Simulated assay, not measured.
Amino acid sequence: MTTSSLLQASGLRKTFGDNVVLDGVDLDVPEGTTTAIIGPSGSGKTTLLRSLNALTVPDAGTVSIGDVSVDFGSLPRGKEGRRACERLRAQSGMVFQSHELFPHRTVLGNLVEGPVQVQGEDPDEAAARARALLEQVGLAGREDAYPSQLSGGQQQRVGIARALALRPRVVLLDEPTSALDPELVGEVLAVVRDLASQGWTMVVVTHEIRFAADVADTVVFVDGGHVVERGPARDVVDAPQHERTQRFLERVLHPG
């Protein structure tokens, strides 16, 4: 594992109307590490994650993934700005809260769509890689199924495989278990744990605090659009230094 930064964000700011959602957020993710972003609802976690691949376009700040960098404060208007965002987006794979699979395509069809249609990969090679990814996430033999024939946990595992099929530099996961029934959460977390052990670079927004402590290298606590605390995962979860972090974790880990 290297410790060189693969993803860097600096000064990210985003407002929706009068609501300041991100207020000068910095983030640094070394290659081969997992960073977990935690915090209360409405704290800016998802907006931060979506800003890292320009699905949400910040008002200001810079994001760099590898040698691709976008300064959103000076982003050109129109086609040139869109292309800059697309170049950044191509460096990452996104796993959404609620799967976002194409319902009219088979599992295999969902996985090969991006590599073939967007990246121009040979269809046979894309299909072979997709089958290997399905085996990796525990869904070998389900390539001809449609999303409606799968459980929520299986659909989310397909979503993870679809993100990996794009061969991204960074995998971004937005609360990948939040839409699942409790008994299905473990199967998705097991896949994320496996990816972390393989050295994928990941940023995970999660409310699974103990999972974050066990799997992530770094935990970042966000509240009110600010990074309040960051550090080694177990240090932040087990011995938080900031009073706001302490209150949040006490409420989450010891409700009632």
Rank of each mutant, 00 (worst) to 15 (best):
M1A: 13
S4I: 10
S10Q: 14
K14P: 02
T15R: 15
G17Y: 10
V20D: 04
V20H: 12
V21E: 00
D28A: 13
V29P: 04
P30G: 08
P30E: 03
E31N: 12
E31L: 08
G32E: 05
T33A: 12
T35C: 14
I37F: 05
I38R: 01
G39C: 05
G42W: 10
K45V: 06
T46V: 02
S51N: 02
L52W: 00
L52N: 01
A54R: 09
V57I: 14
V57H: 00
A60W: 00
G61W: 00
T62Q: 11
I65F: 05
G66I: 04
G66N: 08
V68W: 01
D71C: 10
F72R: 05
S74M: 01
P76S: 08
R77I: 03
K79N: 13
R82V: 13
R82S: 14
R83S: 14
L88Y: 01
G93R: 01
M94C: 05
M94Q: 00
V95P: 00
Q97G: 08
P103E: 02
H104Q: 13
H104D: 10
T106L: 08
G109F: 09
Q117L: 15
V118D: 02
E121I: 11
E121L: 14
P123H: 05
D124G: 13
A126F: 08
A128V: 11
A132R: 14
A132S: 14
L133A: 10
L133T: 05
Q136R: 15
Q136F: 13
V137S: 10
G138D: 09
G138A: 08
E143I: 09
E143V: 12
A145R: 15
A145V: 00
Q149T: 11
L150S: 12
S151V: 09
G153I: 10
G153Y: 04
Q154D: 10
Q154G: 10
V158N: 06
G159F: 06
G159Y: 07
I160R: 01
L164S: 07
V170I: 12
L172N: 03
L173A: 15
L173W: 00
L173I: 00
L173C: 15
D174S: 09
E175I: 08
P176A: 08
S178H: 01
L180F: 10
L180A: 08
D181P: 09
L184S: 14
L184C: 02
G186F: 06
E187G: 05
L189V: 10
L189Q: 11
V191Y: 01
V191A: 08
V192L: 15
S197G: 12
Q198M: 13
G199R: 09
W200V: 12
M202Y: 09
M202D: 06
V203Q: 04
E208L: 06
I209V: 15
I209D: 06
R210H: 13
R210K: 11
F211M: 11
A212Y: 07
V215P: 09
V220M: 02
F221V: 04
V222K: 02
V222H: 04
H226E: 13
V227Y: 03
V228I: 15
P232E: 04
R234E: 14
D235M: 09
D235E: 15
V236W: 03
P240I: 03
Q241C: 11
H242W: 00
L249S: 12
V252P: 07
H254T: 13
